[in-house]
Design a protein around this nucleic acid. Structure first.
Lengths: 253, 253
DNA sequence: CGCTGTATTGACCTCCTTCAAATGCGGTGG
DNA sequence: CCACCGCATTTGAAGGAGGTCAATACAGCG
């Protein structure tokens, strides 16, 4: 199921709209080196200064921090195509951890290779900027989600976001996708307890907004779910063609 | 009080450690154009495609979003030296608003100038990357703050962060700084109500952790405040010299 | 000295947490 | 095919952090 570094990376960076054939050829010359990683394994921990930048080829990983008190906050979901740690190419030391949530395939690119790309290939540099800035857009939306929305709308919003992100990499279809995250993972994304996530999931089911069983999320009424949480996909900066079929933006409850 | 674009920008980007004299000379050739902006005024609103990148020279501004329901989440504080919208040079359309919180002086740099810098000046490019990635680090910490900490520790953490950030631009001293934010602003940063911020501020005062009156925040016991909220400054990626005098990292309560 | 905006207080409410136990489910071995 | 194990989900009861609404106090300022 897992794809190559080349196809994954090119599909991802092509979404920026900056690449030319020359750039794609440059990316094709990268020497892929990938490895399987089990679920719930750390790829990088806070304080590391890794020599490689990681790209997820298959599975779900996440950025997270453990705070004093032992609570975990997940600060990003990393799905196939996402860079785990472009940061370290610039900042040196990691200020958070990266771990798998499901079994993953992960590719490694030497830090020097990234530096070479940003220094000498302006359009690839811009495409990498684009990837970083869209990540930041997602992060901002998550902050708004956790800070302002009620639990039930938080969950609905997360499901809407994942739907579009997975669509853009061919891992979802119009009305659903595989949802391998467990309830405690969802809880640590949203700043809730897993108990409350459980109760709220049931509310969403009863409202007919989702069908979630055996690790598969079905969305019977996409427009309804989006309206319910006030979902506006602009922060993902996707090309218009990705799953924009019938976005109805009625202000949510 | 407001400084020039040149000195502000160079001080900021120099923190990355990437600039040479040549780069600084390049930055000196920028033609500054700055303007005063009153408090509570929008510089850019969601959906804009501005032709200028803004830099705060004086005062406090913020990134924010208004969600369906009218609630405001502040997603970043912009203090002197901070870029408001490097994003637009790459992403085109803004996915959030930027507004002043206090009276500000703001400089404008044409979008094309930024593109020219990122394309042809590798070390300035990296310095801009550094600025963006540290912003992202702050955003992650805010998410963890809002998602996992109790209100009183959230406030303490915010005060610790601001202390270091303002120290790094010469706007704080060892034991305090000017705090122009009103309680509703603090509330929208932390995902709380202003009523609750008020009550929690009093708790911090009673605990002897802060003295806050007439827009001035005093921190009588910095190590104590940091320990109280488990503050770890690593995410700011500051050079060691900035205010690291006596960071004591005892895990917070 | 009154005006305006911010800070403060009180009473009540509810969303979410906590703790602990029970249920369900996918796999495995007998 | 069934019994059993380990894991995730589900449920219940009770408590607490923070929200809501509305009134009051206060500070800076013309």
């Amino acid at each position: 199921m897992s794809e190559t570094l080349h196809s994954t990376l090119i599909r991802k960076l092509d979404q920026s709209g900056f690449l030319t054939d020359i750039d794609r050829a440059t990316l094709m010359r990268l020497t892929p080196r990938s490895r399987p990683v089990a679920a719930r394994v750390d790829l990088i921990v806070e304080g590391d200064r890794p020599e490689y930048v990681h790209v997820v080829l298959d599975g779900f990983a996440c950025r997270y921090k453990i705070l004093a008190g032992g609570k975990r906050q997940i600060m990003a979901l990393l799905v196939p195509g996402d860079f785990c740690d472009l940061h370290v190419a610039i900042l040196g030391e990691m200020d958070h951890c990266i771990g798998t949530l499901t079994p993953c395939t992960v590719a490694q690119v030497p830090r020097r290779t990234i530096e070479e790309l940003t220094d000498h290939h302006p359009r690839i540099n811009r495409a990498l900027w684009w990837a970083t800035l869209t990540d930041e857009g997602v992060l901002r939306e998550w902050l708004a989600n956790v800070g302002q929305r009620e639990a039930i709308q938080q969950l609905a919003h997360l499901f809407c976001e994942l739907h579009l992100r997975l669509l853009s990499v061919g891992l979802a279809d119009a009305d659903g996708y595989d949802m391998p995250l467990r309830q405690p993972d969802l809880a640590d994304i949203l700043g809730l307890t897993s108990v409350h996530v459980n109760r709220v999931l049931q509310e969403l089911r009863v409202a007919g907004l989702i069908v979630l069983r055996s690790r598969r999320l079905q969305i019977p009424n996409l427009a309804g779910l989006r309206a319910y949480c006030g979902f506006n996909p602009n922060y993902l900066h996707l090309t218009p063609r990705v799953g924009e079929a019938e976005v109805t933006l009625t202000p949510g409850a």
